[in-house]
Design a protein around this nucleic acid. Sequence first.
DNA 1: TATTAATTGACAATATTGGTTAGATATATT
DNA 2: AATATATCTAACCAATATTGTCAATTAATA
Lengths: 142, 142
Amino acid sequence: MHLSAKLKYAVCAMLELGLQYRQEFVSVTTLAEKRSIPGPFLEKLLLDLKKAGLTTSRRGPDGGYSLALPPDEIRIGDIFTAVDGPVNFTEGFETQDSSEIATFLADIEQEVREVLNTKTLHELCCHARKLKQLSHPHPFFI
Amino acid sequence: MHLSAKLKYAVCAMLELGLQYRQEFVSVTTLAEKRSIPGPFLEKLLLDLKKAGLTTSRRGPDGGYSLALPPDEIRIGDIFTAVDGPVNFTEGFETQDSSEIATFLADIEQEVREVLNTKTLHELCCHARKLKQLSHPHPFFI
DNA sequence: TATTAATTGACAATATTGGTTAGATATATT
DNA sequence: AATATATCTAACCAATATTGTCAATTAATA
């Protein structure tokens, strides 16, 4: 069980947007260069995140993308779901004669969801800032 | 995040072997018919599980597969790992300039592993028996 | 009006998944 | 020894998903 490249790119981009929260909009090109992500691919990705309500955008000069919510209201699981779809362990079991397995795996699925929903983008940002030895740009987000 | 067909088949097969534990060896054909799994595909799968030390086999007439361990010593995570490889959220981040994300995701990865390692095949068997309203063939496994 | 940058959709290359086929090897029975 | 059973091994194929590109369109700003 590994993360798709798409999801890895998404986490990188969201972290970058998180670190810039309440500053300027960040263009796809800037994001792509900063994290070595193929531009057009990142473009579609950011649209997925927008459709999921995690980012907003502005066109034209000085346009770009920005978080639609404060980082502490964006759970890691939200990013996973927006990009790769929801955690789903039971699909394909209900239909067959394996409903026993479906109900059993539903429990595990729920626990995994909770793991992903416990940590937020804000925590990732704090972690990243700490490692970069940077101070927080907005003290009220500590 | 969903389960591969391969993994679904594996869970089905392991459940079946768990229900037959300490009885006869079960042939690939029997398993395949019981759970509607393409035979040759299941064959490769059971070999993966054998390489991982979860099943044993015997050739020739009345041969087939059997669990290599009692069901309560086989964790669901062991099946996942044997078939799909280990849970790995950090791969691809260490190499880049995203080690911040790698260390952050390592935590989450570990928690997911623990979820999968908490439940055992024995619990799945009990669950299945309960739903089938069958009694346990061996009281000392309750 | 010109420039910037998001949006949309079609498309191509590549990798993975799911599945098949054929043959070799081991075991048990007769 | 011969035969039937059933695992093992490896090569192979088709379908699908993933990853990535390209061109045209739309919106916002100066």
